[in-house]
Design a protein around this nucleic acid. Structure first.
Lengths: 221, 221
DNA sequence: GTCTATATATCGATAGAC
DNA sequence: GTCTATCGATATATAGAC
């Protein structure tokens, strides 16, 4: 769909769904440079539209990134549901942790829009809403392991989510070393850590620590 | 030390250590607005110097933020060393995880400069270097628990660091709910998760997963 | 309704004067 | 070591063409 060589860059967009084109181009750009360096102007330039055109569809840079984050939450939810669908509860929880890290690596730009964009969650409740269903993938097997105790369920689920998130964040960080070789190893580490947490979950369900809110399972900025 | 009311903002700096003043003002600004919104110009304005002055001391925005990150690594290392100094190895590891989360909450701007600034680690090796000593606080007790097995030591230490980091990131994210009430509860959760990981560490030391680099313990961007 | 053209303001960074 | 002046790039807002 690239138009004939206009001066000043490829013009892949003519007239159509600019909103959708902007989301796709943003994902593309997030894969090339840091999310902090993303700009509406560059997205406009790549699409061959005026820099002001996106403001007809998004109030600003934050709104566009929030739309990408919502999309990321949906895709991550699909992947978690797919990879953590079978097995006993412990296996499903470990598979969810592994899938979380795998998604962060394979879809780095999307994951960063969801969990590393610094978006203010209160100004973009649609992200938290889209992420809410993600938490169910962790909560359901945790509930089975906690034997119906909702407080214990929340603590186990939160611990596994935090562990998976921490592994993903440090992997993208380069803390676990460069290169794709580390990715699958870290995903396996996250799954193993989840199994370890399950084995030692008596520490999590003890009465010595303050309660956590029961519905707080997913990163959003 | 505020000078007499000059027009256009408080002038706290006259002639002296501009480099140090910039680092302190940057930390102050990071506490007021998002790190993404930090600008050299605003730091200059607040100090009452020209916008070009900082470039005598820092090559650019990234260099200034990297200097703040190095300072953050030092302070975090001090706090970890202080709070994880006593007790048996399991207690020290759990205390390190708790202290990690507490630092992230209490020194949010510094922690974000260290772990959430998106700095390219390869372009700022001094950050990784400053963070290296941090890893020792986790590695030493992990080594005692792993009985001298270096691969097992690295896996246990990495898992605890990742879990602590995940709890800290989601806490700052707002995922665990707003307000300072959540902070200490999450810190306790991270400590409990560390104990659970230790209890279930047989899962981490199994031969079924790929090795991780033995010296990769700390977040840097 | 959708997009272009344009104006204003701010930021990062550089060059040269003091 | 700091300032003035300036450049290029950017976000935002407005007015008007299609």
């Amino acid at each position: 769909m690239t138009g004939p060589g206009q001066p000043g860059g490829r013009r892949r967009y003519h007239h159509g769904d600019l909103r959708e084109a902007l989301i796709e181009t943003t994902i593309e750009l997030l894969g090339e440079r840091d999310i902090q360096a993303f700009s509406m102007a560059e997205a406009s330039r790549r699409l061959g539209v005026a820099v002001a055109a996106p403001y007809r569809h998004f109030a600003g840079r934050e709104d566009l990134l929030a739309a990408v984050a919502v999309r990321a939450a949906g895709l991550l939810g699909q992947r978690l549901g797919r990879e953590a669908a079978t097995g006993d509860p412990a296996e499903r929880l470990a598979a969810a942790a592994r899938a979380y890290v795998r998604f962060a690596w394979a879809q780095r730009p999307l994951f960063q829009a969801l969990a590393g964009s610094g978006l203010d969650k209160r100004r973009h409740p649609e992200i938290g809403q889209a992420a809410q269903s993600l938490g169910q993938v962790f909560l359901a097997p945790a509930r089975a392991l906690a034997g119906g105790d909702e407080a214990a369920t929340a603590r186990l689920s939160s611990a596994v989510v935090a562990t998976a998130h921490g592994h993903a964040a440090l992997l993208l960080d380069g803390t676990f070393g460069p290169g794709p070789a580390a990715a699958e190893a870290v995903a396996g580490q996250a799954a193993a850590a989840a199994r370890a947490l399950i084995d030692g979950r008596a520490w999590l369900t003890g009465p010595q620590h303050g309660d956590l809110p029961p519905d707080s399972p997913v990163p959003t900025s």
